[in-house]
Design a protein around this nucleic acid. Structure first.
Lengths: 205, 205
DNA sequence: GCAGTATTTTACTATTTGATAAAATTTATT
DNA sequence: AATAAATTTTATCAAATAGTAAAATACTGC
């Protein structure tokens, strides 16, 4: 139960079971809407048993949020200096789309937290991304200054990439509603739409 | 109390007071996280008094959702055939950005509902938009067929416009965090970024 | 196998929540 | 002003919720 000590064999297993169930519930109902009873039921255990492994509902949620932020960190970090900046950015877009496709629940969890104004400590959510984000903005700026990509606002470039890619996870029900029957090919289509758009936008005139 | 009959003078006033308070609470805490007690308190009335005007929490939420969907309907409907399709689409983007700026709470309410899978009846949320949406997709397709805009997937064009514009309302805390100090000029910058991107993307080669 | 620790179960609680019944009051109609 | 209808207040409740205490069981290292 002590969080500082090293987790035992059983703790590692239980925490994984709980986190999986919690991700499902939190993504589906939000923090307030999800109940630890239902999370426990989904993980096939009693509530006190769950609470033995996580101090309280918030601790469980925070653990989930933390690992999600880390998941988001990877693709951004991979954006590095290269001979072909535009293709490097396109590769980042592809990775982000892939994240939406593979981890929609994590994307929704994260989106839900931000949507409600990041009530549970902005520090925990943004701080891990902050340094990397600033570094990548600087990288984009260097590419612009060197005339290797078009002079577009790097911040808004990032935001638009996040928006367009995460949209396919976060707003999936809406897209499914308006693109009936096309759901299986959605991500391929999205890539086919987005990559040319960003290539054109970033190509130096 | 009977919903079918015409609202009295008092009902009109009370419902407005309640809806305003409810929008604030629902946008900030989500459906499950918001409590009718707190909504009532914010509207400076007792809970039973609130419940005299709205059957239950869900009826209140639905009323809010319905008016929000209608709010979204307007800017889309204004997209009509014209001599300059690209500028017409740019005008739509401007309107959508303006909506995010003026009605962030409504945007978040709507986003929250979709994020959680539209638990309260897809019919009520999407049906009012469906017909208009299909008509506008058809319009875009005609512009493409006539060679007046570039042949991009009209569905994904719509999705990307929704994503990029609503992002500034729905993910405002994240943007504020990563664009410190630039908050007042954010929407002007966004327009400066997005419009050239879409112009280039839609211009026929 | 035993002692000590980790884990789980059982039983329980305090609070919040959405909601209702019925009495009291205000407002509208004549 | 009298009456009926609409609105509000007061008192109350049942269900769900997050969380706890303590006893019982399982596991681990020796």
């Amino acid at each position: 139960m002590a969080t500082t000590e090293k987790p035992t064999r059983i703790q590692k297993v239980r925490r994984e079971e709980i986190l999986e169930a919690a991700l499902e519930e939190f993504a589906q109902h939000g923090f307030r809407g999800a109940s630890i009873n239902k999370i426990a039921a989904r993980a096939e255990m009693s509530t006190p048993r769950l609470l033995y492994h996580f101090k309280d509902k918030e601790a469980l949620y925070r653990a989930l949020l933390k690992s999600t932020v880390m998941l988001w960190h990877g693709p951004l970090q991979m954006l590095t200096d290269t001979d072909e900046p535009i293709e490097e950015i396109c590769a980042y877009i592809r990775r982000k789309l892939e994240m939406s496709r593979k981890f929609p629940r994590e994307s929704r969890l994260f989106a839900g937290e931000i949507l409600l104004g990041v009530p549970l400590g902005k520090t925990e959510v943004f701080d891990p991304l902050r340094e990397t984000f600033d570094a990548k903005i600087a990288l984009l700026q260097r590419w612009i200054d060197a005339g290797r990509i078009a002079p577009v606002d790097p911040h808004h470039l990032m935001y638009s990439i996040w928006a367009t890619t995460q949209h396919y996870a976060d707003f999936a029900p809406q897209i499914a509603e308006f693109s009936p029957g096309k759901v299986p090919t959605l991500f391929a289509e999205a890539e086919g739409f987005l990559l040319p758009m960003y290539r054109r936008h970033l190509t130096v005139a």
